[in-house]
Design a protein around this nucleic acid. Structure first.
Lengths: 249, 249
DNA sequence: CGACGTATTGACTCGGCTCAAAACCTGTGG
DNA sequence: CCACAGGTTTTGAGCCGAGTCAATACGTCG
């Protein structure tokens, strides 16, 4: 049940093959999954699934952003993970008692590939090589969660923002110091566990302390050393934080 | 290289066999591990390993508590996990590029079984059933980390303490409302990401709001419903939070 | 009893949240 | 091209939660 046009077929195939998980999968299994795949486009705020649901699909993000979050009874939400191009959403549910442990929604207009989760569970159980790839995948996520916990417990708002910016620099070729925010500021704020207003004010403090310039969604880091010293004082890692997790999932 | 006395041999064996991980392991592999095991007693503050070290051992806690933590350059520490009897420490390092991603130290006089990590890595690579057990193990940890992130982002100090107490109740048979704190208050405070003084004051607020009594290390919860309403308002789960993670690792 | 570690209390500061208003974008239609 | 409506970001004022530092109380062990 996949998109019939040649163009869509090949982009889907390429995107899947580029992921670490599909690379580790047997020919037949990956073909089955591919054959059952659907490319879908979703607007902002569309819901992929709700915490507590029984999982039916998992997703590969082709473009845009998906937020994985948990929502309290009085409406507050905590973002657990923001998933961008080349990363999967919901691929861990077979490991989690067959219930979604978080909700997921589109945070920024997104194009996704939707895949049936039953095939994934089967592949894990039957294919050792694939199970190892899943292990690597989960371990990576766990590591970045540990870093996030550390940051939440020990860093102040301005340091967390600085840390976020450093991570963006990390992706850039050889410490490029000009970058573009990947999504809106209020989303970044929520991700970092603070209010939008606090974000706004904390950026000013950051600028005073490290000369970072933020205009619109463009950021300039004139003194990378200054920034990293300011940020990493409250962290167990030092820039450039060894982050093999910036690979594709 | 294991303790030669019959008593120690059998307790070690029993403890290992009781864990989910060893249960999933092949006879030969688990025998090899058992043969290489050492029972050790360590005082408070003894270091198991440091973040960045190359892992040599992993540990099973027989009694006492081990804290897994990350330490910043200016000496602050964030507890990632507090590991008690029946749980492993450092068993995930084979998945993490063969470097410890956290430090670990004894938080409360502990008896441990020390096991060589090389055998563990081999078992994961070669034994599919065991790899699945590791997957389950890591997924469980990831889930409780997600909950912790949620709590840190959305709950105030008093709610986090209440949540901690509810978790303790959960372990108790059928909602027993009298319990004993498992370790010192300042350790609990650090675990929950707050100062000792804040902990002290927040307990008072909790008492005013939910009638929880704390004297010394004894806690009485006269009205469980009241407590859970107070706590779970700021959480995506409701008491009793489905926590299959309270099983042995 | 005295000494040490742990827990509590008090006074103060500061970071971050809340609510409300203003400024700024971006896209739309006249 | 401008005006306007919608969202997002910034600012301001005030409040409250949590950190800090220092002093006191409590417990435990010698």
């Amino acid at each position: 049940m996949y998109d019939a046009t040649a163009e869509n077929t090949t982009t889907t195939l390429n995107a899947l093959q580029a992921t670490q998980l599909f690379g580790a999968m047997s020919e037949t299994a990956s073909y089955q999954l591919f054959a059952a795949s659907q490319k879908i486009t979703m607007d902002k705020d569309s819901l992929l699934y709700l915490q507590g649901d029984n999982p039916e699909w998992f997703y590969l993000v082709l473009s845009g952003w998906v937020k994985v979050f948990r929502e309290t009874f009085d409406g507050d939400e905590a973002i657990i993970e923001l998933v961008g191009a080349g990363q999967f959403v919901g691929e861990c549910t077979p490991l989690e008692g067959n219930t979604h442990t978080c909700s997921a929604a589109v945070a920024d207009k997104a194009v996704l590939i939707r895949l049936p989760i039953s095939l994934l569970g089967a592949a894990i159980k039957e294919d050792h090589k694939f199970a190892l790839a899943m292990l690597e995948n989960v371990a990576k996520k766990r590591l970045s969660q540990m870093k996030e916990i550390e940051g939440l417990k020990l860093q102040k708002a301005d340091q967390r923002i600085g840390c976020f910016l450093l991570q963006q620099c990390n992706g850039q070729p050889s410490g490029e110091r000009d970058l573009t925010l990947p999504y809106g500021k209020s989303l970044i704020a929520t991700q970092l566990g603070m209010q939008g207003e606090t974000f706004s004010r904390a950026i000013k403090k950051l600028r005073n302390a490290t000369d970072v310039q933020v205009t619109k969604n463009k950021v300039t880091v004139p003194d990378l050393k200054k920034l990293s010293e300011f940020v990493c004082a409250g962290c167990s890692n030092q820039y450039p934080c060894k982050t093999p997790e910036s690979d594709k999932a």
